[in-house]
Design a protein around this nucleic acid. Structure first.
Lengths: 209, 209, 209, 209
DNA sequence: AATGAATGAGGTTTCATTCAT
DNA sequence: GATGAATGAAACCTCATTCAT
């Protein structure tokens, strides 16, 4: 059974023997898109980088968009699943939030190319693809929403008319932090920011007298 | 002197006649990019929408990228200048931050097309363009940094080893809030979120016992 | 007004100044298809043969299929219209038939390349295109049917339960005669066959004792 | 000796094992080409339809063109041989002609897929292939020519300077009749047209007073 | 003999840009 | 200055064919 034939989106092409080749193309795609961006990334170059012929790419992916989609499914998917798992693992909403930030920064901090694709180039995609991205991200947002709700009920988080406002603050903060890390060349260790960011999100920038 | 011949990038053509035509093309570009995205936006369509011939576009802009750049310069520029002005106008850092959030949400909230371009399509641009965007944004970030520093010195903001962590939280939160507003169809009034977001940024999500 | 913007099918592209260029491309297409066939005919070669750039072809035609369609519309159309006109001009069905054969052989006999396209390469087209061809041909068949009906009523043609059987004999005979002429290299004058074919169609191959 | 290794074109591979597989591929080719046409017919689909691997096709046929050629050789060949046999069997030219029309309509009328290929898709082939088709057809045309000559000598057919004119009428009529039958969906029984067509060919459309 | 994964050449079409009028 | 017809490079994708297993 091929690893990559599993999953909701699935792959409509009967995949032959080589799951390694599928991964090779996927990794090549991440590499090429990291440097060239989505629209500039040529299928021919992805193929060359993966060490296969142009046509081979189409044995594993339906088309260029499908390549990007698969990068998404396999990577955002990881963070999303990780977040869901963490939520279940840590009933304490404060701890859950901390672990989630850690997971977010760890996953992207360990693979700058992947982070580049997810933070920058994904957003170059067309409307249809962006909606797909949103759909994949939704469980992540739901997890954040639930953590916030539980925290409010437990009295550790402030009460808000709409928890989505806080969720956007959290997600926006993580997102922008990763962005900044990428654009400064991914030189420092993203994980060192877990605690400062967590503290700031909890306490805000205002000084509690 | 034409309004649009001012600025860092400048314009290589001496424009004598028609500043109105320049604006028409710029507005058309915003409209077309809002619906089609950067890469799908065709120069021919921008020209048609602006009521000029294809070639005329090249009398006012060096190339397609230059059109986008100019959209940036003229719009981000407004927020940036506004923020600088607000900073000078309001010595109180809390007030300055509040006014800045208000300016940010007002400017984008009043022109969904423009917001769409700035939030979504700008990011489809190439490396060079994104770096230019960053350069234009820098004064905005500097303003935030200074407000934070003044606030720390005055004891109204928490002390942080690196104020940029807080700045990214602020900017990331505003950015994600606008993003969410756009993707849900820009149905509600963005300005209603000024106070909740401000409060959350100051106090954090944690409950102060 | 452009000559080629008239007609049922029309042309969905706003055509600029040059009706001559439209004709040049059309003639080039006939020439290229005559030698290479429909599927082997490359747009690039048609463009080169017409003395224009590849892209220019797409200013005058929507796509490759549209080129072929236009060859059809403009040429079969001629025979069809001619046949309708002849029918009106000659109330005598015998004379009408004779004139029609003459028109058929004249039109194709004068332009072997065009004949090649119509007899051979049109038939390489896809289902959709062939149905379009059939639609364009229909008036021609209707004309034949009417001539046969009038002739039957007048007692100069045999009575048949279904006139379409006779129509297919006439059309099939003309078609095969042109085919044979083409495949032997279009060496003789097709018009010399008007009388023999007419006589044979009227009298059959059987000897009237 | 395999059935299919006989013939002009021959088969470059010594086939030991499986004449049934050869036939399976041939029948699959007819089926696929009937629906998709020559150029749209993919070797992979023929293989799948025949229940063999792609590569296996190339053990039995030199290339795609060879497959079509073989369809021709084996099917037109049948009509051709049948016609030759009928000619020998029926010294009476009128009877011979009648039997030949019957054979023509029977063979194609019983297998619409085959008829589709022979009437429509064969003609999508390239020059070289069409010449091969002509070569295979030639004995059929010769048979018609001889029947006509014998008939003329016997005084049952009209005298013509060139019997090929009459032959083209006969063949064109049969061809167009089959064509019309196919394009109307092969709904009626083609054999019911044997007598009307025969009568018309013999007597012509003119009324003998 | 049989397989089917891999190959890679080849063609249509788009669209930013130019330049003669 | 303004025009817009013309340009032509560039890229995705298909599919006949091969060859290692």
């Amino acid at each position: 059974m091929n690893v990559h034939s599993v999953g909701a989106g699935g792959c409509q092409i009967a995949l032959g023997k080589d799951a390694a080749k599928y991964q090779a193309i996927l990794q090549a795609a991440i590499r090429v898109m990291a440097t060239s961006g989505y629209h500039r990334a040529q299928v021919a170059r992805i193929a060359r980088e993966a060490g296969v012929a142009d046509g081979t790419v189409y044995l594993y992916f339906k088309n260029k968009e499908d390549i990007l989609m698969s990068v998404l499914r396999e990577t955002i998917g990881q963070i999303v699943m990780l977040s869901t798992w963490l939520e279940g693992e840590h009933p304490d909403p404060l701890m859950a939030l901390h672990k989630l930030i850690e997971a977010h920064f760890s996953t992207l901090g360990e693979d700058p190319d992947l982070a580049m694709v997810l933070q920058v180039h994904i957003r170059q995609a067309d409307r249809a693809l962006r909606e797909e991205v949103a759909a994949i991200m939704r469980p992540y947002h739901r997890t954040l929403d639930r953590i916030l709700e539980v925290g409010q009920a437990a009295g550790v988080f402030v009460s808000l008319p709409d928890p989505r406002i806080a969720r956007r603050m959290i997600f926006g903060t993580l997102d922008e932090t990763v962005n900044a890390w990428i654009f400064t060349g991914a030189k420092y260790n993203l994980k060192t920011l877990v605690d400062p960011v967590y503290t700031l999100l909890i306490g805000g920038i205002g000084k509690n007298s």
